[in-house]
Design a protein around this nucleic acid. Structure first.
Lengths: 104, 104
DNA sequence: ATCGGTTATCGTCGATAGGCGATAAAGCAT
DNA sequence: ATGCTTTATCGCCTATCGACGATAACCGAT
């Protein structure tokens, strides 16, 4: 059961979904360390977690948390390769973000 | 006194400033209500606070807080007009955001 | 089977975010 | 001066964030 609220008066459900997607993606980008991680991944294309940890003045567990957040919104993909995890950007998701931002 | 840390190894100060600007701007965008406010301001160009409150299912104080956050990062400008405040987008800041996002 | 290397998760802590009602502040009108 | 309208701020509460160390989980090699 879904009631129309004042808040959706001017917005289709489709639009509301976009709003939430954009907000949650931006929230994930709302920390300088996570921006750095994205830029690093763009430069190196793909790398294992340990390399990312080396570039940052943070504990391994903290970096792993940031990577988890980026994974949850789909900006980053992590593939398990034996004992390690290989990370890379999801370029499609990044493109979609750019499109949503450009529409503001 | 500024020491070079491992974290800045691949980043100029200029780049670090951009990272922080982008992160804090994205952080401000990281809530669906604030996305809605920006879109509403785009549609109506400019309006007083009360009109924004009417479009949202939130208390006036809550909306005022969201507007404060958008003002702090410069996405929104608030001009006091007598007893009320007139809000509008800062299109230059929005353009800069789009540029920074496009560079990711 | 155990060890070494790598990454994810847990638990904890202080700080911040997000919501609200109540109240202050400011300008206009009476 | 008193009110009325509008907006900002305060205080409170709960929930989430961000950092860390410790530990678990996983795999490959010995």
């Amino acid at each position: 059961m879904k009631s129309a609220s004042l808040a959706t008066e001017y917005h289709s459900d489709r639009q509301a979904d976009d709003d939430h997607e954009l907000a949650s993606t931006c929230k994930a980008l709302g920390h300088p360390v996570r921006i750095r991680i994205l830029q690093f991944l763009k430069r190196v294309d793909r790398c294992i977690c340990g390399e990312i940890v080396e570039t940052l003045p943070l504990a391994q567990s903290t970096v792993s948390q940031h990577l988890k957040i980026l994974k949850e919104v789909g900006l980053v993909i992590g593939e398990i390769e034996g004992p390690r995890t290989c990370y890379c950007l999801d370029k499609e998701k990044l493109t979609r973000l750019k499109k949503l931002i450009a529409g503001l």
